[in-house]
Design a protein around this nucleic acid. Structure first.
Lengths: 153, 153
DNA sequence: ATTACTGCAAAGGCTTTGCACGGGT
DNA sequence: ACCCGTGCAAAGCCTTTGCAGTAAT
């Protein structure tokens, strides 16, 4: 078990009270909060914390690779301290993002054909070095309505 | 070949000059533009078009299922008139989104275990009715640098 | 004739930035 | 002692909204 201090040191990050509080709170979050949500969560337990610092910390941590920014469809970023490759479930409402359990995440990510990715990378002159999978969830209709069934995709 | 008029009629959408121009321009786009980019593209060929109307049109078309909003990581939405399930490549810079060729898209999407999705849906009390896959691309390093190789994922 | 859509400009979220101060190394 | 990180408030970007006029059905 490495401490936040050690982890930050490894990445040449200064251990400020605020930055550590932000990171540790994010690590404990099951759902992936927005900057604002994280601020409201961390603020009460931390003296002298501003929203700007939450943004700055998240930016720094993202740059260091300790935090991942999750793409969203409503212009408001969400953050994840689990940087391992795993899937997310997003609600059509855009209200929340959840993790898919590791088992299924792993199964799907293993199913990705490596050679295909490399081919794309070569074609673009880029390196494909990450994958982001979001399952889109909509409210379950009461009856078996004809459209939008689970097998649509 | 159905015309835009017919398509809109099918979805009970009014055929305004602006809305049709926005939709047809988006259909022709290879890359997936932001609202602003689309506006700059359509404006010269369309009399009386405002940016607000581009936003309104995209919102309406998205609601009708003719257009898809692509999640991004920088708080600025991109749009895609191809609503079939396919993969995207996103650059770390956030500057652009490209399509993955249908062949590989299809191969990957077919690899998704349906039973797993259904299990997740049941668990959430939701219906999983879409999937969004983004491959993340970074500039190819000149040498074979140790970290961030294509096989990281 | 009715109703929805448009343009314009203002307002609204989310995020970044400039600057002076304080804290980490 | 040095320099980065912080707080605050202002500015910035993207998007939505209110309203009066216009166009589609």
């Amino acid at each position: 078990m490495t401490t936040t201090r050690e982890l930050f040191a490894t990445h040449s990050l200064r251990c400020t009270r605020q930055r550590m509080a932000v990171y540790e709170a994010l690590c404990e979050c099951e759902q992936h909060p927005t900057a604002e949500e994280l601020f409201r969560l961390v603020k009460p337990r931390t003296q002298k914390l501003s929203l700007a610092t939450v943004y700055n910390s998240l930016e720094t941590l993202t740059g260091a690779g300790l935090v991942r920014r999750l793409p969203t469809t409503n212009g408001c970023c969400r953050y994840d301290a689990d940087t391992s490759e795993h899937l997310h479930v997003c609600f059509r409402s855009g209200s929340e993002i959840l993790d898919v359990p590791p088992g299924l995440s792993h199964r799907l990510i293993e199913g990705v054909p490596r050679d295909g990715l490399e081919a794309i990378g070569r074609h673009l002159g880029m390196r494909i070095d990450g994958i982001c999978v979001q399952l889109i969830a909509a409210p379950e209709p009461a009856d078996g309505s004809p459209n939008g069934r689970a097998d649509r995709i």
